[in-house]
Amino acid sequence: MTEATTTHRSSPADDAPDTLVLPDGRTLAWWEFGDPAADTVVLNCHGGLMDGRDVALADEVARERGIRILSPDRPGVGGTSRAGHAGMLPWVHSDVRPLLDHLGITRCAVMGWSEGGQYALAVAHELPAHVTRAAVIAGALPLDDPQNRAHLNRPDRRLAALSEHAPTLAHAYFAAARRMGRRVPERFAAASARVLDATDQEVIRTHEQWFVTSALGAMDDLGGATDEYRVFVASWGFAPEEVAVPVDVHQGSADQLIEPAWAEELAARLQQGRLIRWPGEGHFIAVTRRPEILGRLVADA
């Protein structure tokens, strides 16, 4: 095992993340937002087809509230090396635990948006002594259940099937999307917004540069993008009922990507789950309701 080493950037506004050489020799990239000197720490698990900058818009509110946000890129995303494994529980031990140990963090909250919600639950399941509270923001139920997967939105269902059974075609799709995002970012943003409700479309219009930049970071490595989709629909390796820490489950009623009814079931299955509904809002409550989400998440800190 090699000794972990790190490089640093000067501020959250820089274009490069911090990097850490992990004990297995891979590189882990992570972003920091909020107050870098704060004792209150939140680990962010980014959404699917986004990198660790998906939480960048929370920088100001986190600074105001004295919160330090750590947001690692997952394997094959952004600056993080792909891993030999493809699963959430191995990721907690290969990436998250070394990062927390390296930074000397023994207690934190954890949150995840969309696909990141299940990763947040994985951290809570595997590191209950570290995690004070978790938040699942517009997250899914386990998608290895055929009934749940049948209710997944059509674009994600198609990309998941391609990533599992025809990865070359999945690579071609991601390569084409990446070209569009680099050459005509406004067209990429508009195409992404078409499947969303009006509130989400407005978020993308207002924060187009943020959205495109984070999405492109998720497609730097085409293999990493397919890995993400395979894990999204694979077995979690644990049941929601096995998560012991308190979990807030946030869901917008107008979400076009995640079945809103899933949130009620997930909250009921968790040992200490609490459902927070956002009537009339969509998938991007991670942006529109971030102050409220962070406030609940660190209320006990």
Rank of each mutant, 00 (worst) to 15 (best):
A215S: 14
I204H: 05
I67T: 13
R183A: 12
W262M: 02
W30G: 05
D18R: 15
V41M: 09
G116Y: 08
D18A: 14
H250S: 01
D197R: 00
P90Y: 11
S11T: 15
E228F: 04
G116W: 03
V249Y: 03
V245T: 03
E115L: 09
E281M: 10
G25P: 01
M50K: 11
R277I: 05
G237Q: 01
L20A: 12
V212W: 02
D39Y: 09
D51I: 11
V184I: 04
M219V: 10
A218Y: 11
W30L: 07
D18P: 01
R107Q: 15
V298E: 11
V110T: 10
T27R: 14
G84N: 03
V123W: 06
E241H: 01
D156N: 15
I276Q: 09
Y229F: 15
E115C: 06
L297P: 07
A234R: 03
F211Y: 14
V298D: 10
V247I: 08
R26V: 02
V123H: 09
P155N: 10
P260C: 06
D156V: 05
I67Y: 13
G66E: 13
Y229C: 01
V231L: 03
W210L: 12
V243A: 00
G79D: 08
P279W: 09
H165W: 11
A263W: 00
S11P: 00
L20Q: 13
R68N: 13
P142I: 08
H165V: 06
R26K: 04
G295E: 15
V55M: 09
